[in-house]
Design a protein around this nucleic acid. Structure first.
Length: 746
DNA sequence: ACCGCACGGGG
DNA sequence: GGGTACGTGCGGT
């Protein structure tokens, strides 16, 4: 029998593999697997064989650091436990790798591999790869006053919703729908932290067991220190928010990762955003409209999943991690698992995770100096060229052989790190640079093929490789990482700073004005802001002829306009700019007031101001701000546009300080409304004096006559607008007409 | 200026 | 599979 591997879990020494067969039917295969770990062979075999619960020993030769060494493979059911018992006399390795993952690594199985299970021996062997057609279902729930009142499911055959005042019915119907569709993939948007968490809580309340698993098991939750994930046995739950927020956000223009914004950018479809109050009203008065809203959400989620699943699969194939896991990983974890696979394939010892006290020690070290930032020349500029180093840190690591085992060792020649005593061996290639070089070469080959004939699969594969390559530096700097190396991280950024600074100097010598530079990128214009293309290309050629190793400067693009906002004093280096390209589309970084404690009125104004400024309509922008201020002062702005939703992260009495949430929450208690952890409060600031926490009131009982003009003018509208207009020389005074001055702050 | 706390997504 | 996010902005002192 043949099947495509989609997921796996483990119970004791039995691993269950989930997949689908050639006809697309679900398959579960079990395989026995005896866990083990390694001990450095120091003549301690006899002693090891006497340790209780050790099942058997084997000898193996593996590379550790730069040398081959002899190890004893210790088979036992619980490597961590045995290791604790013997660590006083044996040097132990590979005890800290979860069995489910170690199984796949040892067997050499990659997700989406086609595996064959022999009828006679039950041995599982790898046959090839597949891109299977999978049954996908997207799920979305609606919650009113803490109860699940509605859900919708979307599949390729259409979408439907179910709602009822009886929550039990909703939950039972949900189970029925999912089990009837029997999807391979369940897609949600924030299902790990919201939908499935909510479903679990409400099931507990009703004492229901909602068995969504293919084996009849309920949804179960993988806990990690700061997040949790919802697993469904036999199906792959893809939480698109988890994926997008960890691995995709850098590719996105949008700085908020709401379903609406992400879907708009990736699939060109979006959703209407309703306030919580609106939803409540809909539930009371127009359930059909609410069903439509809910169905739209699950449709969007489905479309987004269809769009992203091939990318997730590409990451899975490259990193060797299951789609469920790799769609929830951070860059660092992904690259670590890749290296772990490669260790096994090249017969190396896989480094273990550091222990807590070791992590603490690493954390206590001084922060590693980061990339170089050239403060932007603030204001609006014309005719810009933007350069960036192609994969700066990966190319530095490869070019200078930066790896823990090549650091400060005896050798004939070495690379000397600028401004640091560290040196890296030049004679023999280190493990990390070797792996990285492989990734970069593989990616370059794919890009070459793409130039001849573009395909989506190739693009997704090169993107997966890019993620892996870019994560390598972060791994050196991450105290939790197996390949952590303070010196390697320090050296990577030192080389990075050296070469970006040098390229800035060279650009200036070449006659450009260097407007801004950050880590690996460089923004320039000509002094008279004349067209720049020809000179930029000449400059690029010159620089690249001088760069060492595989380092290379790329032309990122030409822009008609660029607006730069300087960092506040003492602020960490952060990208803050907006660009207008030759086709008229706008790129924004770090400027937008996207936090949810900004009211819709201020957010909308800021977007408009930015658009106008980039189009060169600065006066028009200023006038728009003035009009917005005047409208606020005339009390002509609807309360909804000033309403901010906030969530109680704990019960009101548990807040340690007096703040807006604690005050509002207690107010609710006093008035007999429940305000528990998780409650959403929609508030508007009333006029008056004293801290705003005292003046925040529930939006439904605030009218246009009550809102605090001063607060909304200064803390919302002008604060948002001035982020963009301040670098152009505007101050608050410019927007306060006579008669409004009394609202101005001294 | 500093400090403590909360935010993100979802409803 | 976690004993640990993370970078930042707000309000209060």
């Amino acid at each position: 029998m043949r099947f495509t591997l989609l997921d796996a879990d483990r119970n004791g020494n039995v691993t269950r593999l989930f997949g689908i067969d050639e006809k697309g039917a679900p398959v579960t295969v079990t395989d026995n697997y005896q866990p083990y770990f390694y001990v450095l062979d120091e003549g301690n075999e006899t002693r090891l064989s006497k340790v209780q619960d050790v099942k058997r020993l084997e000898k193996e030769s593996l590379t550790l650091g730069m040398e081959k060494k002899n190890f004893i493979k210790v088979f036992c059911d619980s490597p961590i436990e045995i290791r604790d018992r013997i660590k006083h006399f044996a040097k132990c390795f590979e005890y800290s790798i979860g069995v489910r993952r170690k199984y796949l690594i040892d067997r050499g199985f990659y997700p989406l591999d086609v595996l064959e299970i022999s009828e006679q021996s039950h041995r599982i062997t790898r046959i090839g790869e597949a891109s299977p057609k999978l049954k996908m279902l997207a799920l979305d729930i609606e919650v009113i006053n803490g109860k699940i009142v509605m859900f919708s499911v979307a599949t390729k055959d259409g979408a439907k919703a179910f709602s009822s005042d009886n929550e039990r019915d909703v939950l039972l119907k949900l189970k029925e729908f999912v089990r009837k569709e029997d999807p391979d993939i369940v897609a949600t948007y924030n299902g790990d932290l919201f939908d499935f968490d909510m479903i679990r809580k409400r099931c507990e309340f009703h004492m229901l067991n909602i068995a969504l698993g293919r084996d009849g098991s309920p949804v179960y939750f993988g806990k990690s220190a700061w997040t949790s994930s919802a697993r469904i046995a036999g199906r792959v739950h893809i939480d698109l928010y988890a994926f997008v927020s960890r691995l995709m956000f850098q590719q996105l223009q949008s700085e908020v990762l709401t379903l609406g914004e992400v879907a708009k950018e990736l699939i060109g479809k979006t959703k209407e955003k309703h306030s919580l109050e609106k939803l409540e009203t809909m539930w009371k008065s127009d359930r059909k409209a609410m069903e439509k809203y809910c169905i739209n959400d699950s449709r969007l989620t489905l479309a987004l999943c269809e769009n992203l699943i091939t990318q997730i699969f590409a990451l899975s194939r490259v990193s060797g991690q299951l789609p469920f896991d790799c769609s929830r990983m951070t860059f660092g974890a992904l690259s670590e698992w890749y290296l772990m696979r490669k260790c096994r394939e090249t017969k190396r010892i896989i480094p273990d995770s550091p222990h807590f006290h070791e992590v603490e020690k690493r954390r206590a070290k001084e922060r590693i100096k980061g990339g170089y930032v050239k403060e932007p020349v603030k204001g609006l500029h014309s005719n810009l060229a933007v350069f960036d180093f192609r994969s700066l840190y990966p190319s530095v690591i490869v070019s200078f052989n930066i790896s823990p085992e090549t650091l400060n060792i005896e050798c004939k020649s070495h690379h000397q790190v600028p401004d640091y005593p560290h040196r890296f061996c030049r004679d023999r290639e280190g493990f990390v640079p070797q792996m990285l070089k492989e990734i970069l070469e593989r990616r370059a080959a794919i890009k070459k093929r793409m130039k001849k004939s573009y395909s989506r699969e190739l693009n997704e594969e090169q993107f997966a490789l890019k993620i892996l390559a870019n994560a390598t530096y972060g791994m050196f700097a991450n105290p939790n990482a197996r390949w952590y190396s303070y010196e390697c991280a320090e050296s990577s950024t030192a080389y990075g700073r050296h070469y970006i600074q040098k390229s800035i100097e060279d650009a200036e010598k070449y006659g450009f004005v260097a407007l801004y530079g950050d880590t690996d990128s460089l923004f320039v214009k000509l002094p008279d802001e004349t067209p720049i293309k020809k000179r930029a290309l000449m400059f690029l050629k010159k620089i690249n002829s001088e760069l060492p190793g595989i380092m290379e400067l790329d032309l990122q693009g030409f822009y008609r306009k660029g607006l730069f906002v300087p960092q506040k004093k003492g602020d960490a280096a952060k990208k803050r700019y907006a660009l207008l390209d030759e086709k008229g589309s706008v790129t924004v970084r770090g400027l937008e007031a996207v936090r949810r404690d900004w009211c819709p009125f201020a957010k909308k104004l800021q977007r408009e101001v930015l658009r106008l400024v980039l189009l060169g309509k600065e006066k028009h922008a200023a006038e728009t701000v003035r009009r917005a201020v005047a409208k606020l002062v005339k009390r002509d702005v609807p309360v909804e546009a000033l309403t901010v939703d906030t969530q109680l992260s704990r019960s009101p009495e548990d807040y340690k300080t007096k703040n807006l949430r604690s005050v509002l929450g207690s107010k609710m208690w006093r008035e007999g409304m429940k305000a528990e952890e998780g409650a959403i409060l929609s508030y508007v600031i009333r006029s008056g004096s004293g801290p705003i926490s005292d003046r925040a009131d529930f939006s439904h009982r605030v009218t246009k006559q009550d809102y605090d003009v001063d607060y909304y003018v200064h803390k919302q509208v002008l604060a948002a607008a001035l982020r963009i207009l301040a670098p152009l020389g505007y101050t608050e005074e410019d927007f306060l007409a006579k008669g409004l001055k009394k609202f101005a702050k001294k």
